[in-house]
Design a protein around this nucleic acid. Structure first.
Lengths: 340, 340
DNA sequence: CTGAAAGCGCTAACAT
DNA sequence: ATGTTAGCGCTTTCAG
């Protein structure tokens, strides 16, 4: 039977005593090391089970010099973009025997820096997702000796290891699709000011203008509410297509347009970005760009683990920084058609 | 300046040396303890800054006997229900100086048990969200000495501390609303087999039958896809209203119904549950039940912290188990009307 | 007010 | 193959 109640913690010493072995031996069977005599090993395992012993993570961490924990910092866990990423990251990391400490900065750059500084005390490595903090803070973290990986933000000149999604190509695909359909004037409902994701989109939009597509940029945001609220302004901007920062904005727009009696795509075309599950189920279904959220999480996990393994002597091999820019995929559905 | 590069870890000893103080003193200023001489304290803080020193979490944890970390285990982080809960939980817990270790069991009961057993090695306390594991495993965990809190699952006879949402009342409210509108035959699209949330809904539905509402139960699931796929079966069941397990299912149904030319609510009424942000933005907007996800997260945090503070002698005060059953709120919108 | 020293529970040389 | 023992970095009595 397992000991019940709130007694003192069972230690490796207790197990050793119970199994009439040394702590080293117990440690060995625990870590599946060397050739421990079968009978002895069995006794130890028995004792472990009897006593309900679990090694203390703190003690192991201290002795080993690493915690077996990776830290992830996201701006908003409630955003499917990040929860999917974290999910995939955790699952992948777990396969290499580690755990994940997740923190949510609530989109606040200051909170973000503080949490990151706290996180590195616990973790062997750090994944920063779309960090909002200023370059200087990022640089400070980077020079801190902890394996650091940044997802979806580039910081030119900072020698950061990064993974990311090719937003640029995605927006270009959207614009190309629209242009082929015959659209010439599109309205972009912009995302959060500071975000790299938004800057990337703007950059791509600028590229599209070179192909003769005229783009009007309207400040909006990243939520359904903001999309809903921006609908009337968007209509006034006089385009034949609306390019939303993401699917939430698009669905907000769609909702308001329906109320206003504006038909999609007959009266105006609409595109989302960063495909969410529900995009297929709106009326009409949304033309949008699928980004590999889980793929990004997996890639980040692999990259970070590799970073930590080869951490013998610092900043070598930074040549393949940004090697990872995961491809995206345009999904054409009912919300886009030729302009009337 | 902060030391750069990947040198050996800076320890409290290094700081002591640099500040010409003892480690004890450094520890004191670190923990804001006692009256350390102002000048000395200042020297120490200076050294800390100069060296870029951060105390090792593992060492602190080992010495203090607690990690300052709480564990949370959810079936699916990508589900807004849980990500919102975790977000609120983390934020609240952070205010009392702790961190949160999040794990995702991917809805697998076995994985769930293993992760929970692993989590307790790291954490001072554990929050199990809607655990899918069998009673026996739950009981084993409970008798393990770690402060344990269970959210959204009741385990009769197990003396578990729990917090939860009043699903029962929510479903009753939905049924009442429908009945008042004049509906007599409703179809319930059921959620995951084993889930407590689904059982609670069924129980409430049974209660509603006592009021003369006839309920047909159809197996379905919890995703938009499953809702979409169930639409035609639901129609055949011959009710005047569809009660979906949750909003995802409802939106899937809505999407398919639109394709089939069935109008909501004119031809058939539809309700969701567990209001998601997008529920307000569908066409028509969804009548659904808002559950206090963040409130649940906060309540869990408060309860768990209290549990850990008063952990002097075990299973007292279990009288107020289940004291927390957070109220829900019916939001009537366009997807319900009187039957035709 | 400050410091020396004994652990916290585990791992990893280093013997045997 | 197994055991002894010295740390890992920090907190915390206990003296001074």
């Amino acid at each position: 039977m397992v000991a019940k109640g709130r007694g003192k913690r069972v230690t490796i010493g207790d197990v050793a005593r119970a199994a009439d072995a040394s702590v080293t031996t117990v440690s060995r069977v625990l870590n599946e090391v060397a050739t421990v005599d079968a009978a002895l090993a069995h006794r130890v395992r028995q004792a472990i089970a009897d006593l309900g012993y679990r090694p203390s993570a703190a003690a192991q961490g201290l002795a080993r010099g690493r915690s077996g924990t990776l830290g992830v910092l996201v701006p908003d866990l409630a955003n499917p973009h990040f929860s999917d990423l974290v999910k995939a990251f955790s699952a992948t990391v777990r396969d290499s025997g580690a755990r994940v400490l997740v923190m949510d900065s609530d989109e606040d750059p200051d909170v973000e820096r503080d949490l990151a500084e706290d996180l590195i005390r616990y973790a062997d490595g750090l994944l920063l997702c779309a960090p909002r903090m200023p370059r200087a803070d990022l640089a400070a973290l980077a020079s801190r000796g902890v394996p650091l990986l940044v997802a979806n933000r580039r910081a030119p000149g900072l020698a950061l290891h990064t993974v990311g999604v090719d937003f640029h190509q995605g927006v270009l695909a959207v614009c190309g699709h629209l242009a082929q359909l015959g659209h010439r004037r599109v309205v972009y409902l912009a995302g959060p000011e500071g975000s790299w994701a938004n800057r990337e989109r703007l950059r791509a939009l600028a590229g599209a203008e070179a192909f003769g597509l005229h783009v009007t940029v309207l400040a909006c945001g990243s939520t359904t509410d903001e999309g809903y609220a921006a609908a009337e302004r968007a209509l006034e901007a006089d385009g034949t297509a609306l390019v939303a920062y993401n699917d939430f904005v698009a669905l907000g727009l769609l909702s308001r347009l329906a109320e206003l009696g504006v038909r999609v795509p007959e009266d105006i075309s609409l595109t989302g970005f960063d495909e969410i599950d529900l995009a297929r189920f709106s009326s009409p279904p949304l033309t949008t760009v699928a980004v590999p959220r889980s793929g990004l999480g997996r890639a980040a996990a692999v990259a970070l683990v590799r970073l930590m393994d080869g951490n013998t002597d610092g900043d070598d091999a930074l040549e393949d920084v940004d090697a990872e820019a995961l491809p995206v995929e345009l999904h054409v559905r009912g919300s886009t058609s030729a302009p009337s």
